Computed example of a mutant assay.
Amino acid sequence: MVAVRLWGSLGEAAGATEVEVQASNLRELLLGLEENYPVLRSELERGISVSIDGKIYNDSWATPIAPDSEVVLLTRLVGG
């Protein structure tokens, strides 16, 4: 299981600032969140950014996630 911290509106929507999901990569993480926390579906569809061990990912679906990785979900970061 991977512990996932939820920032801002994501945490408010889920009613928790941290959840756990079974995942070994970013795609499995997002699918698991949608399945286990359907209240997050609209937020996930709008777009989110994921920080894994301090690096931000948006669409790198095969990015591996270790069980002890620090994972933070936040609304999508855009800009230059």
Rank of each mutant, 00 (worst) to 15 (best):
M1P: 10
V2Y: 02
V2N: 01
A3N: 06
V4K: 07
R5M: 00
R5H: 13
W7H: 13
G8T: 15
G8D: 15
G8K: 12
S9T: 13
S9R: 14
L10W: 04
L10F: 09
L10Q: 05
G11D: 03
E12G: 10
E12K: 03
E12D: 06
A14C: 09
G15F: 12
G15Y: 11
T17M: 07
T17E: 09
E18V: 11
E18Y: 14
V19P: 07
V19C: 07
V19F: 01
V19K: 08
E20T: 09
V21N: 02
Q22W: 13
A23P: 00
S24N: 11
L26A: 11
R27M: 14
R27S: 06
E28F: 01
E28G: 06
L31E: 15
L31D: 10
L31N: 10
G32A: 08
L33G: 03
L33R: 01
L33A: 06
L33F: 05
L33V: 03
L33Q: 05
L33S: 01
E34K: 09
E35T: 15
N36V: 00
N36P: 05
N36E: 11
Y37L: 15
Y37T: 10
P38Y: 13
P38K: 07
V39C: 15
L40Y: 05
R41M: 14
S42G: 02
E43D: 01
L44D: 04
L44V: 11
L44A: 09
E45K: 07
R46H: 13
R46A: 14
R46F: 15
G47M: 14
I48P: 00
S49I: 09
V50F: 01
S51V: 00
I52P: 03
I52K: 02
D53Q: 01
D53M: 08
G54Q: 09
G54C: 08
G54M: 06
K55P: 06
Y57T: 05
Y57S: 05
N58E: 15
D59E: 11
D59I: 01
W61R: 04
A62K: 12
A62C: 09
P64R: 12
P64S: 13
A66P: 12
P67H: 13
P67W: 03
P67I: 02
P67A: 03
D68V: 08
S69W: 06
S69T: 01
E70S: 03
E70V: 08
E70A: 13
L73W: 07
L73R: 00
L73T: 03
L74T: 02
L74W: 04
T75D: 03
R76H: 05
V78R: 04
G80M: 13
